[in-house]
Amino acid sequence: MKVVVVSGGSRGLGVKIVESFLERDYRVASCSRLRTKQIVDWEQAFPERFYYQEMDLTDNAACKRFVRNVERTLGDIDILVNNAGMANSSLLALESDESIDQVVDLNLKGAIILSREVSRSMLLRHWGRIIHISSITGQIGFRGLSVYCASKAGLDGFTRALARELGARKITVNAVAPGYLTTEMTGELNQEQILQIVRRTPLGRLGEPEDVIGLIQFLASEQADFITGQVLVVDGGLGC
């Protein structure tokens, strides 16, 4: 039974990702700032194969401890899904240092540190899957989300470079770039913005988390052995 780590599994898309791996009998570990009711439910329902740690992913030492705890509790990590992320909507000219640090530290640096820690044990087993949850905004931009967009574009570059580093050990590194999903993150958009997105989307709707889950499951599987270094867009055609 493979071990998967999903960062930021307590809300939004992260919940659906954790759920999809639990449904397929994986051993799943997750972490986030706050233990939600959903997390408590999973801890009770899957005590043998669900591990959770409340932690700050911008704390490098905490990331390292988390990975060691997962290895001790569930076993060596086969799959990492870097999902944790946040967005602060503001024009850059008005954005504080703290806000910029928060977004870059969590979305980009947190993913890099977790990938480093997990890749070390993947190197020993000559197999692994690293999947970053990026965003279409990293490619097309979005007004008021420049730092978030920069962090996601950074994640895309990180995906390609790390794929080149780890490919020789059969560790694949890919990113999934969803368009606008019906999660808490788009909850901050107003009705006018949402309608505009829907009008520009060839498939005529916002995405659902389930639209992304299938691709994540595929990338995590043995079937995706020959796919690495890719940023795969799931946006209903918005960016095409």
Binding site: R120, S121, L123, L124, A168
Partner: peptide, 13 residues
Amino acid sequence: SLCVAELSAMLEK
């Protein structure tokens, strides 16, 4: 370099 990364991980483990 990749062998060194592997050795580093192996020694740490």
